[in-house]
Design a protein around this nucleic acid. Sequence first.
DNA 1: ACGTCCTTGTGAACGTTCGCACAAAGTGAG
DNA 2: CTCACTTTGTGCGAACGTTCACAAGGACGT
Lengths: 242, 242
Amino acid sequence: MTSSNRPAGEVPRVRAGRDRGIPDATVARLPVYLRALMTLSERGTPTVSSEDLASAAGVNSAKLRKDLSHLGSYGTRGVGYDVQYLIYQISRELGLTQDWPVVIVGTGNLGRALADYGGFVSRGFRVAALLDADPAKVGQQVAGMTVQHVDKLEAVVQESGVAIGVIATPAPAAQEVCDRLVAVGVRSILNFAPVVLQAPDEVRIRKVDLSIELQILAFHIQRATGGQLPALAGEQEPEGAT
Amino acid sequence: MTSSNRPAGEVPRVRAGRDRGIPDATVARLPVYLRALMTLSERGTPTVSSEDLASAAGVNSAKLRKDLSHLGSYGTRGVGYDVQYLIYQISRELGLTQDWPVVIVGTGNLGRALADYGGFVSRGFRVAALLDADPAKVGQQVAGMTVQHVDKLEAVVQESGVAIGVIATPAPAAQEVCDRLVAVGVRSILNFAPVVLQAPDEVRIRKVDLSIELQILAFHIQRATGGQLPALAGEQEPEGAT
DNA sequence: ACGTCCTTGTGAACGTTCGCACAAAGTGAG
DNA sequence: CTCACTTTGTGCGAACGTTCACAAGGACGT
Ligand SMILES: NC(=O)c1ccc[n+]([C@@H]2O[C@H](COP(=O)([O-])OP(=O)(O)OC[C@H]3O[C@@H](n4cnc5c(N)ncnc54)[C@H](O)[C@@H]3O)[C@@H](O)[C@H]2O)c1
Ligand SMILES: NC(=O)c1ccc[n+]([C@@H]2O[C@H](COP(=O)([O-])OP(=O)(O)OC[C@H]3O[C@@H](n4cnc5c(N)ncnc54)[C@H](O)[C@@H]3O)[C@@H](O)[C@H]2O)c1
């Protein structure tokens, strides 16, 4: 049939209505700015210019200003941004003024490292439960919590109002865990297993994949050195440094 | 006087010359395709269409075809792509046909999990050394290797021809470790510490940051639910209760 | 040999992101 | 108050990325 899915008279507005749409690229940088601001705050710095904050965050200053302009006009021309106020505004925009209960599924090496991770709790995130399928792991104490059986997943999610699921199981189990999380209403998932999870569009999935990161780095090394190991590439041509 | 650095008659080509420039976005997806292809290979599938492979990788099929077209014309019209051949071509492009020695600095919870991680070695990556500053950790066996003191960093990098450094130390130590890695010639770094590392432009730094990922997810949840916890959003409104 | 069917590879349109450059807006000295 | 100076907020063009749509190319049956 190949029916044209584009009604001829339709206005091609994608995000009609709310103008609150903050670009994805900006959202991804806000946490970086927030962290830089926290460092400044600890040092007692009262205000910061876009130039200095951008430098601390590792971005272009014009980009930083444009990013912040999406939140509103919180700077003072000729002065800069009030550190405390900006921390509050970014936190509010990211939804960090409230507590987000998180469930971690899979309490292996990685799951335990995540549970122990201090920066986890330091923002508004709280580990609501640690789950595992291995009977030997259930009942263990990890980071001050008792590991529960993964059968309790649905109960835990509903009782604690879990909004975010973290998957740290082996790859073969990840899709099933994902399906169960989605079935009980979790719509945000952070996946550490090396698989592409299939889920409905309304579920937001982010992945962290060490192996992919290394492969990207390897590509660039090879591109730069022509495929030689850098340490060896340098030995062929003695370059000043003897 | 804002001298125009753009000669009027100049063609705005940025990457003139080599057409080998593969877009960053494409490079970031190649490892995903590779993984999907490995799965197909294990099942003995001889060929795959762009539609099927794209579906397995979670991307649009046109995007996949364009990505692969940057490597060359390795498909057969009317048939699809030969799985084995494509695995080889992508591996070669990413530089995975050789072994990349990696050094992991910081052997805490995360560093140990990384060292244990099977998918690490499964591709062309090999842990050349595990380093830590804590005398209590030095000498311990982790993933079949002996943890060495971080003082050996320079020696290990040079002897093993380490091309990639992984930083899994606490945040305050990360910049110093980074500086030392850069000083001995490492130009690709994967950073797990929650800091923005400062390094020369020629050093390629990628970061993995759990906390940032969670904050991005939190933003979208809040945007979707208006700031309520999703589990609570569906419940009754406190109506006239006061 | 030839036509039909299938899938690749890519031109072109569209959307997003980036960064320059500068007007607008505020500070502070005299 | 006025002027010099600093820094924000943003218009705009360029670069980059995505997606549609289809011509080109190859396989395969007849
Ligand atoms: N360890 C790393 O550094 C690292 C890095 C990148 C990716 N990963 C991935 O993260 C995942 C976890 O890695 P790990 O090193 O912790 O592995 P692990 O084997 O140490 O831990 C996996 C845990 O998941 C549990 N599990 C298995 N099936 C389950 C299920 N259906 N429900 C709940 N729990 C279940 C196991 O009992 C085990 O405790 C793996 O997919 C791995 O590939 C790990
Ligand atoms: N654990 C996680 O899940 C997780 C997640 C995200 C980010 N991170 C970050 O990764 C880093 C490591 O986390 P962790 O949980 O393994 O912490 P950890 O405290 O368990 O381990 C840190 C290790 O680094 C060593 N170290 C300290 N200074 C060093 C130096 N100068 N040189 C070499 N080694 C040094 C310490 O002795 C310790 O063994 C931290 O920056 C943390 O914020 C961790």
